[in-house]
Write a protein that binds this DNA or RNA. Structure first.
Length: 302
RNA sequence: GGCUCGAUAGCUCAGUUGGUAGAGCAGCGGAUUGAAAAUCCGCGUGUCGGCGGUUCGAUCCCGUCUCGAGCCA
């Protein structure tokens, strides 16, 4: 018997999340729910290293390939997609195994959204015309408290804070403080594990996987129509596009994908390390799927 | 075989009129609640090819050797 709450399974890209998720699901009467920003998209299974057809036949998989390439997405939309799916799986007495590496998306799911306005493209376009300095000055004027704790070198964050003030008519800092208070002890009720691999091991896996996926990824990108702004930022998509446009050769393409993937994996590790409620699961190089340690960490009897 | 140029961080290179050196990329660390596979911040990791010489002091000048590129034979 498993507690009636989802199990979160996180880890950097190429750490082996998908195969571990399948094994856990098989043992614990569970179903896999995607928490990966780019595996939500249809038609990019290879590029995004989505679970294989074989894996999906073993246990049910949800939220893979549910978005069209030209659809946009954000953390809130993901939350709204995932919540009913998780509820539905639980209602059938199954264990949802929420698997993915998108830290912000997962955080929206586990900690809920703060009451902030959704980004408005037209408004963002107006803000994009301003210099960073002008944005910073505007934020300092609208909300000095938020300005003092925002990374003022990060244009994205400054833009977002200004946007929140202007769209809501309230102070960004007030809205965010409210959420911080509400979610302070949410982590205590969650259970999740994150896969830890030695850096060199992870790099080797990324190296190998990048080469293996290239042909399939090229095919996927070639038949793809217009990509949404969200999808256009996917690692691999940009590089393969450039390859198809003749800007770079194959070797350069793979190398760039490898580099970008390594850097992404490092950012993921930083994110998950900070999430104190996640229990680390060490997966040694060349070791088999660590099913029993994972079940133990998850508190599942076996 | 002769001549010329080059050899400096993991890679590509800059530099020191002689006082043991710094950029980009890679790498490492961090931030991160509606763009997040995004965005941003911090950190130089080095027998300055080897061995001799000149000098108070050589990565820099001189000699020699090794390796690489080119030119002439």
């Amino acid at each position: 018997m498993s507690p009636p709450a989802p199990l979160y399974l996180c880890g950097p890209t190429a750490s082996g999340k998908s195969s571990l998720a399948v094994e856990i699901a098989r043992q614990a009467d569970g179903e896999v729910v995607n928490a990966d920003a780019y595996q939500l998209y249809r038609g990019l299974e290879t590029l995004t290293a989505a679970p294989t057809r074989e894996q999906r036949e073993i246990v049910p998989h949800h939220l893979f390939g549910v978005l069209d390439p030209d659809e946009g997405c954000d953390a809130m939309r993901f939350r709204e997609l995932a919540l009913p799916v998780i509820e539905e799986v639980l209602s059938r007495g199954k264990l949802p195994i929420v698997t993915g590496g998108s830290g912000l998306y997962l955080k929206f799911l586990t900690h809920g959204p703060s009451p902030l306005p959704t980004g408005d493209p037209a408004h963002r376009e107006r803000l994009a015309a301003l210099s960073l300095n002008e944005l910073v000055e505007r934020l300092k004027h609208l909300d000095p408290v938020e300005a003092a704790r925002t990374d003022l070198m990060n244009r994205r964050y400054v833009t977002r804070a200004v946007e929140i003030c202007e769209l809501s008519g309230e102070r960004c800092s007030d809205l965010r403080d409210r959420w911080e208070t509400i979610t302070a002890d949410v982590g205590n009720k969650l259970r999740g594990i994150f896969i830890q691999r030695e850096r060199a091991d992870l790099h080797q896996r990324i190296h190998r996987r990048s080469a293996e996926m290239l042909d399939g990824a090229i095919e996927e990108v070639a038949v793809l129509g217009d990509a949404s702004e969200t999808l256009g930022m996917a690692i691999g998509y940009r590089e393969v596009r450039e390859l198809l446009d003749g800007g770079i050769d194959r070797e350069t393409c793979v190398e760039r994908i490898r580099t970008a993937t390594r850097q992404y994996a490092k950012r993921q590790e930083t994110w998950f390390r900070r999430e104190a409620w996640l229990k680390p699961l060490v997966w040694a190089p060349d070791a088999a799927v660590p099913l029993n340690p994972a079940l133990r960490l998850a508190g599942i009897r076996f």
